[in-house]
Simulated scan of single mutants.
Amino acid sequence: MNLKKYTDYGIRVLIFTGMKPKNELASIKEISETFAISKHHLGKIVFELSKLGLVDTVRGRNGGIQLAMPPEEINIGHTVRNLENDAVVVECFDKGTNQCVISPACNLKHVFSEALNAFFQVLDQYTLKDMIVNDKRLRELMGMR
């Protein structure tokens, strides 16, 4: 399974934001600089994370983002499912393209569907809190105090 960069960056935003002290906001600028990701692209991702109810945004000069709930309530499987929203593993998963000629008789779609379900079952076992357990080292790597 190959996740989109969008999803990868979304998880990074959550990790970075989850590392901030409770009442401290993260800014798109600092996340952008930490991970070398375009601020414009991060803005779209933060907007999506906000729509999903995972982050709260504060507008204005001293604005930024913060987690909308405790890290232990943010499920990684749920987050990835929502950010991917079109997990196309093989062509026959994609309803918008021409179907493979053998699709009506091929079992591959079912095998990949089973594998994709297993992938998400593993992710469902983890929360954001599980991703930020090594907080001292993560802070060092992200240049946080």
Score class of each variant (00 low, 15 high):
residue 142 M to P: 04
residue 43 G to C: 02
residue 134 N to Q: 07
residue 114 E to W: 03
residue 9 Y to F: 15
residue 65 I to V: 05
residue 13 V to F: 07
residue 103 S to C: 08
residue 111 V to A: 00
residue 98 N to D: 07
residue 122 V to R: 11
residue 91 E to P: 07
residue 108 L to F: 02
residue 29 K to E: 09
residue 140 E to W: 02
residue 76 I to W: 03
residue 91 E to C: 02
residue 93 F to V: 12
residue 133 V to R: 12
residue 123 L to K: 06
residue 116 L to E: 04
residue 125 Q to E: 12
residue 63 G to F: 13
residue 11 I to H: 09
residue 144 M to Y: 01
residue 108 L to R: 07
residue 122 V to T: 13
residue 111 V to E: 00
residue 143 G to R: 13
residue 98 N to G: 13
residue 29 K to D: 11
residue 109 K to W: 01
residue 117 N to I: 07
residue 85 N to G: 12
residue 74 I to K: 06
residue 35 F to Y: 07
residue 113 S to M: 04
residue 110 H to Y: 07
residue 7 T to P: 03
residue 24 E to S: 11
residue 134 N to C: 10
residue 119 F to L: 09
residue 131 M to R: 10
residue 17 T to R: 06
residue 33 E to P: 09
residue 103 S to K: 09
residue 22 K to A: 11
residue 99 Q to F: 08
residue 96 G to I: 00
residue 14 L to T: 09
residue 124 D to P: 07
residue 105 A to Y: 04
residue 59 R to G: 15
residue 143 G to Q: 12
residue 125 Q to G: 11
residue 105 A to V: 09
residue 81 R to K: 06
residue 118 A to W: 00
residue 28 I to F: 09
residue 44 K to M: 10
residue 116 L to M: 01
residue 101 V to H: 10
residue 73 E to Y: 10
residue 7 T to F: 10
residue 44 K to A: 14
residue 58 V to T: 10
residue 55 V to L: 06
residue 20 K to N: 03
residue 100 C to R: 02
residue 28 I to P: 05
residue 5 K to R: 14
residue 35 F to H: 01
residue 18 G to F: 04
residue 99 Q to I: 15
residue 10 G to N: 08
residue 107 N to A: 08
residue 71 P to D: 08
residue 64 G to H: 04
residue 9 Y to D: 14
residue 145 R to T: 15
residue 60 G to I: 10
residue 130 D to H: 07
residue 53 G to K: 04
residue 112 F to C: 03
residue 43 G to N: 02
residue 50 S to D: 07
residue 28 I to L: 14
residue 132 I to W: 07
residue 103 S to A: 11
residue 91 E to I: 14
residue 66 Q to H: 15
residue 130 D to A: 04
residue 126 Y to W: 05
residue 64 G to T: 06
residue 141 L to C: 12
residue 53 G to L: 04
residue 27 S to G: 13
residue 96 G to R: 01
residue 26 A to Q: 04
residue 115 A to R: 05
residue 123 L to W: 00
residue 1 M to W: 05
residue 74 I to E: 03
residue 35 F to L: 03
residue 34 T to E: 03
residue 67 L to A: 06
residue 90 V to E: 00
residue 126 Y to K: 15
residue 49 L to P: 01
residue 83 L to E: 01
residue 40 H to G: 11
residue 26 A to F: 00
residue 95 K to F: 04
residue 12 R to K: 12
residue 34 T to I: 05
residue 140 E to A: 14
residue 86 D to M: 03
residue 76 I to M: 02
residue 12 R to S: 09
residue 106 C to D: 02
residue 5 K to Q: 15
residue 12 R to F: 12
residue 145 R to H: 14
residue 136 K to I: 13
residue 11 I to V: 15
residue 78 H to G: 13
residue 102 I to N: 09
residue 112 F to A: 00
residue 120 F to N: 08
residue 32 S to V: 13
residue 77 G to I: 09
residue 117 N to C: 02
residue 7 T to L: 13
residue 59 R to P: 15
residue 127 T to D: 05
residue 109 K to D: 03
residue 24 E to A: 02
residue 109 K to A: 09
residue 29 K to W: 11
residue 106 C to W: 04
residue 30 E to W: 04
residue 93 F to P: 03
residue 129 K to D: 10
residue 49 L to M: 12
residue 61 R to P: 08
residue 113 S to H: 00
residue 100 C to W: 00
residue 9 Y to W: 10
residue 112 F to Q: 00
residue 73 E to T: 08
residue 68 A to S: 12
residue 42 L to D: 05
residue 32 S to G: 12
residue 7 T to I: 15
residue 51 K to N: 13
residue 106 C to L: 04
residue 83 L to T: 00
residue 69 M to F: 11
residue 66 Q to G: 14
residue 4 K to M: 14
